[in-house]
């Protein structure tokens, strides 16, 4: 069996303690939460951190889902299955449960965390697309305090985020606005696999008009997991099939998929459009009161 290289192990007892440990141990220290992205990388020795700081003890501090003012707040240590099971999430943002249902498998979802998935920044990661579409923000804490970054600006490239060496992602805030409908669509080679392509669609509607929209894409090389062109094609429009198809075409045109064993770029580009259209149809139906 593959085994990780040796490392020093620390257990953080609070967010402040975790930050203190990060500062003390330097850039070769890594936080580990669910570990389902990091530990496999360590086993094939692509990642060899000198220290691991286990933040699982922070599950109570960072693991809750709540409403704060006009935002849904998701703690970074929220396990995927807790997000999937949350009635609050289901009430406001069914897109997150659509996405969670197709992330890995139920047992992995018991360990994997929302924050861990976002910070791994895999280009095919589902929540990055869904939360970007929702215009969510990430709260990042360091020793000098907290800052707020739109999820759309969290990722600077594959496997890279703006979270600093001595910072920790603590929570995600999703603004709650009236008239919202959202949905997520994914095609995978097999259940539990990373996406060949996936699309996240969010519409906010008022009087039959889409007042604002979010279109997220994963695994197709979309900058920051979103398609601004598709969003622009939706804003101020009635959600007709023509509008949806035009937005989907914009998403397909804007993304930049690459060919790999999941499929050729041509196919992934097609999927970006097809799945955007499907997600938009469901999002609109949900905004209009259907499921």
């Amino acid at each position: 069996m593959q085994t990780p290289a040796p490392f020093g192990y620390e257990r953080a007892t609070s967010v402040d303690h975790a930050i203190q440990l990060l500062e003390q141990l330097g850039p070769e220290a890594r936080l580990v939460a669910g570990g389902h992205s990091l530990l496999p990388m360590m086993k094939i020795r692509l990642a060899q951190p000198e220290h691991l700081i286990d933040i699982n003890p922070l599950a109570a501090e960072l693991g809750s889902i709540s409403i704060d003012g006009d935002s849904l707040v998701i703690g970074a240590m929220t396990r995927h299955n807790d997000l999937l099971a949350s009635p609050l999430v289901g009430e406001h943002f069914p897109i997150l449960q659509d996405a969670e249902r197709v992330i890995a498998d139920p047992v992995v979802r018991n360990r994997g965390t929302v924050g861990g998935s976002l910070c791994q920044a895999d280009p095919a990661e589902d929540l990055s697309a869904a939360l970007s579409a929702l215009h969510a923000t990430a709260t990042i804490r360091g020793s000098s305090g907290s800052r707020s970054v739109p999820v759309r600006e969290l990722h600077v490239g594959p496997y890279e985020t703006v979270v600093g060496d001595a910072e920790i992602l603590t929570e995600i805030r999703v603004p709650i606005r009236n008239g919202c409908g959202s949905a997520y669509e994914k095609v995978e080679r097999r259940v539990g696999d990373w996406a060949i392509a996936s699309a996240a669609a969010v519409v906010w509607m008022d009087g039959g008009i889409i007042t604002d929209a979010g279109v997220g894409l994963a695994a197709v090389g979309a900058d920051h997991f979103v398609s601004p062109a598709a969003e622009a094609a939706l804003r101020g429009q009635q959600p007709t099939e023509d509008v949806i198809v035009a937005a989907a075409a914009a998403a397909a045109a804007e993304c930049n998929p690459s060919t790999d064993q999941r499929g050729p770029a041509e196919y992934k580009r097609h999927l970006a459009g097809e799945l955007t259209a499907r997600a938009l149809r469901r999002a609109v139906a949900r905004a209009q009161g259907g499921q």
């Binding site: 095609v187 060919t259 499929g263 041509e266 196919y267």
Partner: peptide, 23 residues
């Protein structure tokens, strides 16, 4: 017959599955 292979076949462009796809 992965989703990619089936869809490409529908477009008349069936893939060589034993070698990596090249752009």
């Amino acid at each position: 017959l992965t989703p990619a292979q089936v869809w490409m076949t529908m477009q008349g462009k069936t893939l060589r599955t034993d070698l990596a796809f090249e752009d």
